[in-house]
């Protein structure tokens, strides 16, 4: 009996650890992608906005990864988790690791993620895990602004010039197949939802679809096929080729000079 309980609580904390990595890795990788825009944005105002959003995301990632390290209690810290895990150990969504492409690609990626991110964080504000609720409550304010900005860009570019509409349509179509994964719940998430500590993606999905449908209609963008085949695997550590290169760049110093203090 005792052994059973231990095993159960072990697997519970492992599930929690995995879930916290999922929450932390996505903002980290998206923040890293946004850093790549530095000096290349289409206007100085966007330079500031993109860096601002990236800054929020990396800050959130630090909170989640710190909590993950605390939960695992295995001598890790946020930096070790960020800079010494290999791609298959990363739990981020596939959508965030997609390349920046042009500004429409970046905004389409951002918008789909922001909407999901906001609704997920709102749900997490009610988590019975107090640490999770606390981090989510802080992040939710930042992400509300992210969504407001990316939504505006979808509308501006969609309902802008002929060229921008074409590019935005292409961007939406291209990234669409990476959106389904956000709502796929495996056993880890299902267990944690039952326990009342994770966000129930089944409830979030409809809100997200409504939000997206309204924005795309306003932007005069054709809605992609809702039943299209969706890619998945990011949350389980099976990624696209891009992630390896992101990590190679991001982790360079920690890999070249292991255990150094910076």
């Amino acid at each position: 009996m005792t052994i059973n309980m231990d095993t159960q609580s072990n697997s519970q904390s492992e599930a929690l650890y995995d879930y916290l990595l999922r929450l932390g890795d996505s903002p980290l990788i998206l923040g890293q992608r946004l850093c790549e825009w530095c000096g290349h944005a289409p206007a100085l105002e966007e330079e500031i906005a993109i860096m601002n959003i990236g800054l929020d995301l990396i800050g959130q990632c630090r909170n989640w990864l710190e909590l993950a390290a605390k939960t695992a209690d295995n001598g890790q810290d946020a930096d070790k988790l960020a800079f010494t895990r290999d791609a298959h150990q990363y739990r981020n969504l596939l959508i965030v690791e997609q390349p920046n492409g042009n500004f429409a690609d970046t905004m389409a990626r951002q918008y789909f993620y922001d909407a999901w991110h906001l609704f997920t964080l709102e749900a997490l504000c009610n988590s019975n895990n107090r640490d999770i609720a606390e981090i989510a409550a802080k992040a939710v304010k930042e992400v509300r602004y992210h969504l407001r900005r990316s939504r505006e860009w979808i509308i501006r570019l969609g309902d802008g010039t002929e060229l921008s509409q074409q590019r935005m349509q292409q961007a939406i179509d291209d990234i669409w197949m990476y959106t389904g994964e956000m709502f796929e719940m495996d056993d880890i998430e299902k267990t944690l939802v039952q326990e009342g500590c994770a966000a129930d993606q089944q409830q979030i999905k409809q809100r997200w679809l409504d939000e997206v449908a309204e924005t795309l209609a306003t932007a005069t963008i054709n809605h992609p096929d809702p039943d299209a085949y969706m890619q998945q695997g990011g949350k389980q550590g099976v990624h696209t080729e891009g992630l390896g290169f992101i990590l190679a760049e991001m982790q360079f110093l920690q890999r070249a000079y292991p255990n150094a203090t910076w």
């Binding site: 206007a43 105002e45 500031i48 906005a49 601002n52 900005r149 505006e152 501006r156």
Partner: peptide, 15 residues
């Protein structure tokens, strides 16, 4: 600089 008042508010907020 902004294309409309809404964007001006956002840009002013960020700047």
């Amino acid at each position: 600089h902004a294309t409309d008042a809404k964007m001006a508010i956002d840009n002013a907020r960020d700047l």
